[in-house]
Design a protein around this nucleic acid. Structure first.
Lengths: 332, 332
DNA sequence: TTGAAAGCGATACCAC
DNA sequence: GTGGTATCGCTTTCAA
């Protein structure tokens, strides 16, 4: 599988190597005639530019670094669409995606930038106090955070508006005369790490419940267990109008099944509102969390950082508005 | 964030650039004294080698190309552990992972090899007749297939032994005197694409059921639906000993819930055997499908292809043996 | 055991 | 509108 170089293309097209380069980059005008000759030669030879040479000479790798969490459970459902969307956005502009796992910490970031492995970085699953953020800010490479840390250090952030999501859920239950709200939290692991979406969601839920005058408590799955904490939910449930808010999208369906097994039917004896992508919320009232929208916004931001356009400033923090869709699991 | 070059390191250590290179690659012996000087200088400058330059000069990218399917539903659960494991294996040897989505078809493969973006490729989710396989075989780059196509074209394959998995499941039901078996298949989409694991599983199940003299039929979810086809399962279920075999791991739990809602209890009124990773099969009898083992084997193979060692030949097809674990959802 | 220097295959500046 | 060429930062002969 002998590979051809731009020199070969140049020779075949009867032009200079630089002309070939300019045809590819479009950085200077080329007569249509020679353009065609060059393109024909490239076609003929099935020429592909050598990525390493290009990155060395042009200081552009055409690669986006993507730092993903793999530890986070329950993320499976949202992580894949995230990655998928980012891959597609990259491809649209002829960029590649280099995958780095979060367990490598800031070392991974330093490698990405130091070795000139990519032109820009998307950092997912940001913690409230994330050691990687200050490092990322010093990298000298555009970085977009998916999530909002306490101190973004000047970096751009994109995320779902979890505070608004909590408000929407609480308001819905308040508006339908519930007299108690329980937030079914992520497992201890997630909130202890203070994954910042969890923090923001809970804080906002508490605040809004107080504003609406409804008692709100939080329950978590038992240590190290994935099962929904149904017993503790039903324990104090005297028969009033109880509403459950479930920010962990992966837990909604298992929870509802568990409730039904106790003959407690969502929408009849109890209310359930989940936070999850619309397409997964077939049978329950949810607040939408759309990973695809978030990643697309992140990538748009990244590319605008890479090739600044004279348009309006990019907001430092972009929170995507969630939407509540009623599907009958809230008692009316 | 000014970056340093190996020249800077050389100057600081008082040696030549080539010496620095040899310290990094270990391709020639260096006196311990100069080695330490060089390492100290690298440390001092937080030197990182420029990946592009390295790949240009050394014709090694230190990158593994990973081609993943994103369309495949129900894969979410197995796809992430796959990717994660591959990322870890790569990191262990200081390799990066470049992600390419399968929707790019063989164009993606040509890019990976043609642009010298990676040293080797892992191709996942191989179809029985996969247009990418012949292309991959001509790439001039080591390729490992996760899955077994009808014609591997000389490439190495790694996969779970789905035929053995089907045999295990059928044997278990035969051994417990069931008089009917239903395979609850993937959605039409998956088997129509003739994803080859589906093909192999079904073929083997049929064969083994015949050998054991048990009637076996196959049902699929309704068009475009994810819900388990419970109605069709229970329709012809006159009350004999019926065993369900569910190769689609993602469907086992939903199916069992649906059955219970019809007051049909797995292990009591009906039998259920799922195919899934052990850690996800908390409550049902399963045949193990361990994505982590498969990826690790694939990566080991890949690295042995990259740096051939004089040991024994690598088998062309490596099928990992599944194991059946009884957890009480099969009637005794 | 080490150094000097010739590439690797692009880009982009300087001429014309 | 096009061509020549220095340059990017590393690897790897060839010489010592």
């Amino acid at each position: 599988m002998a590979s051809f170089t731009s020199k070969d293309v140049a020779r075949m097209a009867g032009v200079s190597q630089s002309t070939v380069s300019y045809v590819m980059t479009g950085k200077r005008s080329i007569s249509e005639k020679t353009r065609q000759k060059v393109l024909a030669a490239m076609e003929q030879l099935t020429y592909e530019p050598h990525a390493g040479a290009r990155s060395l000479a042009g200081r552009r790798t055409q690669v986006i670094g993507l730092v993903v969490p793999f530890d986070a459970e329950g993320k499976a459902a949202t992580l894949l669409p995230f990655i998928e969307t980012i891959a597609h956005c990259a491809r649209e502009r002829d960029y590649e995606v280099l995958l780095v796992t979060a367990d490598q910490g800031s070392a991974g970031l330093r490698r990405l930038a130091g070795r000139a492995l990519c032109d820009a970085i998307v950092l997912m699953d940001i913690l409230e106090h994330d050691e990687r953020v200050p490092v990322a800010a010093e990298l000298g490479v555009p970085v977009v955070l998916v999530g909002v840390p306490a101190d973004p250090a000047g970096l751009h952030c994109v995320d779902l508006d979890f505070e608004e999501a909590a408000r929407l859920a609480v308001d819905e239950l308040a508006g339908t005369h519930h007299d108690e709200i329980i937030v079914v939290n992520w497992r201890a692991g997630v909130s202890e790490r203070r994954a910042n979406f969890a923090v923001r969601f809970l804080r906002s839920a508490h605040r809004q419940a107080e504003a609406r005058g409804i008692p709100l408590t939080v329950v978590e799955p038992a240590d190290g267990r994935y099962e929904p904490p149904v017993d503790r939910i039903l324990a104090g449930h005297a028969g009033g109008r109880l509403g459950l808010v479930v920010p962990n999208g992966a837990m909604v369906v298992p929870l509802m099944h568990a409730l039904r097994r106790h003959d407690v039917v969502p929408g009849v004896h109890i209310s359930v509102i989940g936070v999850s992508p619309d397409r997964e919320a077939g049978e329950y009232t949810n607040v939408s969390e759309e990973p695809r929208d978030v990643s697309r916004t992140a990538m748009d931001t990244l590319f605008r950082l890479l090739d600044p356009v004279p348009g309006p400033e990019i907001p430092a923090i972009q929170l995507l508005a969630p939407r509540l869709t009623r599907r009958g699991t809230v008692m009316r």
